[in-house]
Computed example of a mutant assay.
Amino acid sequence: MNFYRKPNLMLPVSLHDARVEKIAMRRGEKPLSGELVLYFPEGIRAEMKGKWDITGSAEVRLGGIDWDFSGIRYYEGDAVKERSFEEFTADLEESSFEIVDESYGYNRSVFSGYRYQEGFFRVEMEIYHFKEAEYFYEAAPVEEVGDLSE
Score class of each variant (00 low, 15 high):
144 E>P: 05
130 F>A: 00
59 E>G: 02
125 M>K: 06
103 S>N: 15
36 L>Q: 05
97 F>R: 01
145 V>R: 13
6 K>V: 10
35 E>C: 01
47 E>F: 15
69 F>N: 11
81 K>T: 15
100 V>L: 12
51 K>V: 14
125 M>R: 03
124 E>A: 00
106 Y>G: 14
83 R>G: 00
68 D>H: 13
32 L>C: 05
102 E>K: 00
106 Y>L: 12
134 E>L: 15
124 E>S: 00
116 Y>A: 04
90 A>K: 14
106 Y>P: 03
33 S>Y: 09
111 F>N: 04
46 A>L: 05
79 A>K: 12
70 S>R: 05
13 V>H: 01
9 L>D: 14
149 S>R: 04
18 A>V: 04
18 A>N: 03
89 T>R: 12
3 F>N: 13
101 D>H: 14
115 R>S: 04
140 A>S: 09
42 E>K: 15
23 I>P: 03
65 I>A: 03
26 R>A: 13
84 S>L: 07
112 S>A: 10
141 P>Y: 02
122 R>F: 07
112 S>D: 13
83 R>T: 05
110 V>Y: 04
141 P>C: 01
99 I>V: 14
140 A>V: 00
26 R>H: 11
142 V>C: 07
130 F>R: 04
72 I>E: 00
142 V>S: 12
68 D>I: 08
93 E>N: 12
26 R>W: 10
143 E>I: 09
119 G>Q: 06
121 F>T: 02
73 R>K: 15
127 I>G: 02
148 L>K: 08
47 E>A: 15
62 L>Y: 11
44 I>F: 08
140 A>Y: 02
93 E>V: 13
104 Y>A: 10
19 R>C: 11
113 G>V: 04
30 K>A: 09
46 A>M: 07
65 I>K: 06
7 P>V: 11
